[in-house]
Design a binder for these strands. Structure first.
Length: 448
DNA sequence: TCTGGGGTCCTAGGACCC
DNA sequence: TCTGGGGTCCTAGGACCC
């Protein structure tokens, strides 16, 4: 049987959902951002025509198109539509992999290899018909303003590359005999898995194009790169990505991070931020019915001036939004706790201990990002007795989760007394969304 | 005016055990 | 008292993805 994989990728997803739910914004430039001092994280098709794209600073977007509609993210709504389109996909195959919030792989091998009236059908023609039907159903059943681009190929790598070739609302079929043509069209970094750093390392070996990579000896790649050398080889052959197979993989870690806005960068700001992040992580652990025993805390400091890294090895230069970032100092520390953790308060106390052990100079106002992650997760169903004081804690947590689920995060919270003042006055900048709109629910905190 | 926040995988090197 | 090598676990951090 000819293996057939489809990759379906939503176009300008967050921005399209905002337009789907807001008629006045349809056909207009819309930008989604975390806060007005940050960057555009999703731009509508109309905004893209004005040169506004993911990664554009908000101030620049306003300069490019002053009347742009700006909105904060609405993760719940994006998840709502994702669940809807995954349900449509599930009508066509059991081998379905949600790859991210806006894209999925479908193994449609079975329904594409059919025999009608004794005649074997062309599996690629069948696949194209199936995906056209899916695209139509997306418009009628999921959201009439939502569009997606699809790619069809013999493996996940080709399907993903194909879906990227025609946007928006595209459909590209790559038959086995078309594979050779891809080598003339694609750059190294068009291959998912090859980024800025890997491209540079390949360039140093004289590998400048995808053809070069295809023709480079497998054994030499392994010699230079180890295990990733095997992945590079199969990417070069367009034979499959580093991840093949359709597995519903369990969640391995849950974390939150937050960038402290410039005007809030002052000594002592990290603790209340860490507290809020810890409670958010705890709430998600409870929703997912997971606990973990590894805690990771990390802090990023301000980017170094470019002149300081001139001539240095470019380690630490990171990529994103098609741009290369300046050097960023990151410190992080993981710790195995020796017990299972779930309660946000416990997470906070442990992460405070970790933060202290990092011995950062907290008078340094340049610290700007703090994150906390719980890893090495396992489902609570596997555990017998979870927590000390479970009989007291559980009803409290359940009640808190219920209220916050209905009225929004931190409507009700247990705040350690020494942080209460900072958080009530919102002197940490965690509530900058109020630049967009005021919350309909009065936020209430009580000391603990 | 000047860069988000959520993840996964992999490696290197140290600790520790046999 | 001194020494070998293999295996495993742990942590820090880089690279990459959307």
């Amino acid at each position: 049987m000819q293996r057939i994989i489809a990759h379906i990728d939503m176009n300008s997803y967050f921005a399209s959902v905002e337009q789907q739910d807001n008629l006045a914004w349809r056909g207009q430039p819309v930008g989604v951002c975390e806060h007005l001092g940050g960057i555009i994280i999703a731009a509508s098709v109309e905004a893209k025509k004005w040169g506004i794209k993911t990664g554009t600073p908000v101030w620049e977007a306003k300069r490019l198109y002053p009347k742009i509609f700006l909105t904060p993210t609405h993760p719940d709504r994006y998840r709502h539509y994702t669940a809807k389109f995954l349900k449509v996909f599930a009508d066509y195959t059991d081998d379905l992999e949600k790859y991210s919030i806006d894209e999925a792989f479908l193994d449609i091998t079975k329904i594409c290899n059919t025999i009608k009236n004794g005649v074997r059908q062309d599996p690629f023609a069948e696949a194209e018909a199936v995906v056209r039907e899916i695209k139509l159903r997306m418009k009628t059943e999921v959201g009439d303003w939502l569009r997606c681009s699809a790619g069809i190929g013999t493996n996940k790598l080709i399907a993903k590359i194909a879906s990227d070739m025609q946007k928006p609302d595209g459909l590209v079929v790559v038959r086995p005999e078309d594979k050779i043509k891809l080598y003339d069209k694609l750059a190294l970094t068009d291959i998912p898995g090859i980024g800025f750093r890997m491209e540079r390392r390949l360039n140093l070996l004289g590998i400048k194009t995808l053809k070069d990579l295809r023709d480079y000896p497998h054994s030499k790649l392994v010699e230079k790169f180890g295990i990733p050398g095997h992945h590079l080889h199969s990417m070069g052959q367009l034979e499959g990505s580093w991840k093949e197979g359709f597995i519903d993989e369990p969640i391995k870690s849950i974390g939150h991070m937050y960038t402290v806005a410039k005007e809030y960068r002052k000594p002592g700001v990290l603790e209340p931020v860490l507290y809020k992040l810890s409670e958010m992580v705890g709430a998600r652990l409870r929703v997912n019915e997971m606990t973990g025993d590894v805690l990771h805390v990390h802090v990023h400091t301000l980017a170094k001036p470019m002149e300081q890294i001139m001539g240095e090895d470019v380690r630490g230069v990171s990529e994103g939004f098609g741009r290369t970032y300046k050097n960023i100092d990151c410190v992080g520390k993981s710790r195995r706790l020796g017990y299972q953790i779930q309660d946000g308060r416990d997470i906070f106390l442990e992460s405070m201990a970790t933060l202290k052990s990092l011995q950062l100079d907290t008078t340094d106002a340049s610290m700007y990002l703090v994150g906390v992650t719980v890893a090495s997760l396992q489902p609570t169903s596997n555990q017998q007795s979870l927590f000390r004081f479970e009989n007291i804690k559980k009803p409290v947590m359940t009640a808190l989760d219920k209220v916050n689920d209905k009225y929004g995060d931190f409507t009700l919270a247990r705040v350690p007394a020494f942080l209460a003042r900072d958080i009530i006055r919102d002197s940490i900048g965690f509530g900058r969304m109020k630049e967009f709109k005021s919350s309909p629910v009065k936020r209430t905190f009580y000391g603990h």
